[in-house]
Design a protein around this nucleic acid. Structure first.
Lengths: 234, 234
DNA sequence: CGTCACCTTGATGGATATCAAAAACCGTGG
DNA sequence: CCACGGTTTTTGATATCCATCAAGGTGACG
């Protein structure tokens, strides 16, 4: 792929939104292009934040170690996403980011990125917006996990996956990252046995289609209803 | 209480950190002082964000409605805390904030606050730092809730409470907000029966002391160990 | 001193984790 | 094309934990 093409794509993301041309090029000039093969970590939980990343191509899984020593999948990041807003002004990365596929990113050193935000109010505002989005998402995730019924937790995880790694196809929404039962279990806080049973049941009802590493959501509206049985407002 | 005293206190918070005097007064001048009696809401989940609040005195509970229609307590906010960074650039408040005690706040209209951040890089940076903190906290909360063992969830909730509403006393860390078993249950995603049983057991072991609406953590280190049995790194 | 709200404790059932084993899937190499 | 081995997934049996239901106790406050 061409550098120019990737950079053009980068500027269509939330980070570059509404930025004057001069600031766009300043931001691009300050970045470096980096590549990560599948399986390699962009950064590790606990490390001192050195870089801020914008994903250009590929797919990244963000995980956190829970108290039992398991890697909990927090979210999947795709091209256009900023990784990780929450950490670049903190003492350490709160999570680990690993490339699922071969991934290319724009990288900024944290301190030079801070300098850039100080020179550009529009950029600073974009960062605040993105950080707010991320907080909101994690807030909702935390609330979803308190739900008693497991079906709701799994359905919520599927919705999140479809938003973060879903591709519309004629058949339904296909999840492009390879998703094992173990991955889903770690997102929903369940065992993979339970996930398997639930998915089997849903497959019989035509809600999803899933095989080895593969997952397609056939009926997103019914999954949504399972995740959030209608009460009052949203 | 005097306005001047409250405002002096406000400027010692994270929002005003490292701000040049001129910007400090500009920020203060743009704010209005508002009071909320106990039980009144600062804002409701779903409403369009109109104000950003900095708490001067009192105590505020932030809750979110889960899919079963229960109010889940997400965190407690105390004087010095900014409420809510996650929402002021969003379409709606993701949660409800309610005064637990009589509470006074500095309030900024969201759009005038955005204007202020655009004029002050230092202020924008502070907001980014606070937003990062908040995201990180919710991230960790989301992970904690996936833990299977309930003792861990309750212990984690106690630690969070002690950080957000705890006061050091000779006897231990006293939680200043009135905490019912129901409140704790809504933080940990459990029933209040289970919380009651666990707290009773811990009281017999001398870890906590709790009565009607009252809660004191006697042995925070053992509670920490329950919340996070040591594995590798943190 | 009575009422109300909160807290405790016990008994029970159901949902889900755990253990165990077999089946499906995929890539590989014959 | 087919057989093989490892990994993932499915399914079943059992045990455990926690929600639920029920009843009684305790403290606060009028």
């Amino acid at each position: 792929m061409e550098k120019g093409v990737l950079r053009a794509a980068a500027t269509r993301s939330a980070l570059f939104s509404q930025l004057p041309p001069a600031e766009t090029s300043r931001l691009l000039d300050a970045s470096s292009l980096r590549q990560f093969p599948a399986g390699q970590a962009l950064f590790h939980q606990g490390d001192v934040p050195e870089y801020l990343f914008q994903i250009l191509s590929g797919l990244v899984r963000v995980t956190q170690l829970n108290s039992e020593g398991e890697q909990i999948t927090l979210r999947i990041m795709r091209p256009g996403d900023l990784c990780c807003v929450a950490a670049f002004r903190q003492r350490s990365y709160p999570a680990t980011a690993t490339a699922i596929k071969a991934t290319s990113v724009l990288a900024w050193r944290t301190n030079s990125f801070v300098a850039l935000t100080q020179q550009s109010p529009a950029l600073a505002d974009n960062v605040v917006c993105i950080a707010g989005d991320r907080t909101r998402e994690m807030l909702q995730r935390a609330t979803e996990m308190t739900g008693k019924c497991i079906a709701q937790r799994i359905a919520a995880s599927l919705l999140r996956l479809s938003a973060q790694a879903g591709v519309r196809t004629p058949a339904g929404i296909h999840i492009e990252s390879p998703v094992t039962r173990i991955d889903l279990a770690s997102m929903a806080g369940l065992t993979y046995f339970t996930v398997s049973r639930t998915l089997s049941a849903w497959q019989k009802q035509g809600l999803v289609k899933s095989g080895r590493h593969r997952l397609t959501i056939l009926d997103i509206s019914r999954i949504s209803e399972i995740a959030e049985p209608r009460i009052g407002a949203g």
